[in-house]
């Protein structure tokens, strides 16, 4: 039954998939997430709740690489709440390779002090309940969290997503090389420079960029959440 469902579920519309998985999964943090009502797509984006996430990983492939750290922060409408900011190191299953150490400055020693993936994932999913996920180039975040959910709870991550890179890409047809990077986009929206490649500051950077983009798109008027969502 389950392999068949896995095959068919992507064909179903979002709400139906959520209901389906809710029916199939045993009680778990993932089930709780699925059971929490989502923000109304037709309401103004300022009335929704969000969670901006950034992950540091050992590589680009969720099937082979590991999550090294989670950084996230929640938004109530257009207000970022730093009290909800979290930075969690995860103990990877495999030893670190040199390239990822250089990029994230997370060493084997630090990684060894990290928590088990399931502990961090549980807290993350609890915070995500009822919120729209925000990420810059979201395939990384959704891909790795989805893989983690499958590994820990046997089901997919089903959540509405806003991708700040996709929003930027939609603004124009042609983009100069590098112009869609987080730092470059922030500069374009007159946001301060943050040191990047730290999961929490990247999450915060994406959250602020999202606010700037959403305000720019709504031009002082109303803008439905649905217009900002991926898919």
């Amino acid at each position: 039954m389950l392999p068949l469902l896995r095959l068919l579920s992507p064909l179903l519309p979002g709400p139906a998939r959520r209901r389906l998985w809710q029916a199939l999964l045993p009680a778990s943090p993932l089930w709780d997430l699925l059971a929490t009502p989502l923000p109304d797509r037709n309401a103004d984006w300022r009335d929704a709740r969000y969670l901006a996430l950034d992950l540091e990983t050992t590589g680009g492939d969720p099937a082979r690489d590991d999550i090294l750290s989670f950084g996230w922060v929640c938004l109530e409408g257009e207000e970022i709440r730093l009290a909800t900011a979290r930075h969690r190191l995860v103990r990877p299953r495999r030893a670190l390779n040199e390239a990822s150490v250089t990029v994230h400055r997370i060493t084997d020693d630090q990684a060894a002090r990290g928590e088990p993936l399931e502990t961090v994932l549980r807290d993350f999913l609890a915070d995500l309940a009822g919120r729209v996920l925000i990420a810059h180039y979201s395939p990384t975040e959704t891909g790795f969290v989805n893989a983690a959910c499958q590994a820990c709870y046997g089901g997919p991550l089903l959540t509405p997503v806003i991708d700040t890179l996709a929003l930027a890409r939609a603004e124009a047809l042609v983009h100069a090389p590098g112009s869609l990077r987080l730092g470059a986009l922030r500069a374009r929206h007159h946001l301060p420079r943050y040191p990047l490649h730290h999961a929490l500051s990247d999450a915060l950077a994406a959250a602020e960029l999202f606010l700037a983009q959403a305000h720019a798109l709504s031009r002082g008027g109303r803008l439905s959440l649905g217009r900002l969502l991926l898919d």
Partner: peptide
């Protein structure tokens, strides 16, 4: 720092 909230105001807001 942890008690702060962050808001973005577009020019003219």
């Amino acid at each position: 720092s942890r008690a702060l909230v962050i808001r973005y105001l577009r020019r003219g807001s």
